[in-house]
């Protein structure tokens, strides 16, 4: 039983990770006052760049960075439209959701002989499981002479934490960093000021355009990481259906989490748990309840929204272009 719980918790962590990165991107962008519906497209780009670079270089870290850069470039595009040209931010985001998959698949066809699926990364070149040496799997534990409760505990930790990819831990660290930057540093104060009342911030000498550019590009970088957390860790290649709606779920998680990193984290864990449970129950081969089960977190979210959370209030200047 406990063994199963550890497994479910572990899978939850795994599936939440891409959402956490992307939702954090949303948090940063929207706190600076730029709505980012394009998270989905940026995630796709990141997933493709990660998988492609990972395949060609064989180094997951270079691939992960490449994914961030690719996402960041689309963030830059969104920023140019929204900040410099005062675009309708939703429309620009929608454009990115077409451009992201379009360009990814276009390049995939050119680089991989007409296939929309990138070739698989060698399993040794995926994201490493860095804690696996501390919490190894059952066979190694037994070999090492663990037994009884200690064996049980270590096995639990292996399934829950040890067997996880590095991207998982990094996501949690990033949540803390984003929280710290947003609420404990001057930069964070500026970002939030620009999102709440750009005019006031401008009067006090904050460069609104520069701050928003920084926030939107960062949001692209994080979304790119989110995509790569999918294509470099959970699976080992990119395909057209790999990111199907994850960006939108991350967007919802960000709103659900009231535009705060810690709130977004909890919401992402909720959505991740749904996938975790589905995968877990999928082993037992009863399709019917897996559909109903998959539905539950979304219904639960709606219930929570109407009963406890109440009105979700975005940053005051969210979505409004700032003209001097």
């Amino acid at each position: 039983m406990l063994h199963n719980i550890a497994l479910i918790l572990g899978t939850t962590l795994m599936y939440s990770t891409p959402l956490i990165y992307t939702a954090l991107g949303g948090v940063i962008s929207e706190n600076s006052g730029v709505v980012n519906i394009g998270l989905e497209g940026m995630m796709v780009v990141g997933a493709f760049a990660g998988a492609a670079v990972g395949y060609f270089t064989g180094n997951p870290w270079i691939a992960f960075m490449a994914a961030g850069i690719a996402g960041g470039l689309f963030g830059l595009l969104h920023a140019i439209a929204c900040v410099t040209f005062h675009a309708d931010q939703i429309v620009s985001g929608i454009a990115i959701n077409f451009l992201g998959p379009g360009i990814s698949l276009f390049l995939s066809r050119i680089l991989f002989d007409g296939a929309t699926m990138t070739r698989s990364i060698d399993l040794n070149n995926k994201m490493p499981r860095i804690l696996n040496s501390i919490f190894p799997n059952e066979n190694i534990l037994i070999e090492k002479g663990y037994e009884g409760t200690r064996l049980f505990f270590m096995n639990f930790m292996n399934l829950f934490l040890g067997n996880r990819y590095a991207t998982v831990y990094m996501a949690f660290i990033l949540v803390f960093i984003v929280w710290f930057v947003l609420y404990k540093t001057k930069l964070g104060l500026r970002i939030r000021a620009v999102g709440e009342h750009p005019k006031a911030a401008d009067t006090l000498g904050v460069n609104v355009a520069k701050t928003r550019y920084l926030a939107v590009i960062t949001s692209g970088v994080f979304s790119g990481f989110g995509g790569a957390a999918m294509s470099l860790a959970i699976v080992s290649n990119f395909r057209p259906t790999l990111i199907s709606g994850h960006g939108f779920i991350a967007l919802a998680a960000m709103i659900f989490g009231k535009w705060k990193p810690q709130g977004a984290l909890l919401a992402c864990l909720l959505f991740g748990s749904a996938q975790g449970l589905t995968v877990f129950l999928g082993q037992f081969d009863f399709n019917v309840s897996s559909s109903i089960l998959s539905m539950l977190p979304y219904i639960l979210t709606l219930v929570i929204l109407i009963s406890f959370v109440g009105k979700s209030v975005a940053p005051a200047a969210d979505g409004i272009p700032y003209k001097k």
């Binding site: 709606g245 939108f248 779920i249 967007l251 919802a252 709103i255 659900f256 019917v288 559909s291 109903i292 998959s294 539905m295 979304y298 219904i299 979210t301 709606l302 929204l305 109407i306 109440g310 009105k311 979700s312 975005a314």
Partner: peptide
């Protein structure tokens, strides 16, 4: 209704309902 009565952002509720609909069909 959710937006009018409870102030739930329509972007989030429609995204949730999309998935509910998808799984409903699959069910």
């Amino acid at each position: 209704f959710f937006k009018a009565r409870f102030g739930v952002n329509e972007v989030i509720s429609t995204i949730m309902l999309n998935w509910v609909a998808l799984y409903l069909q699959n069910f």
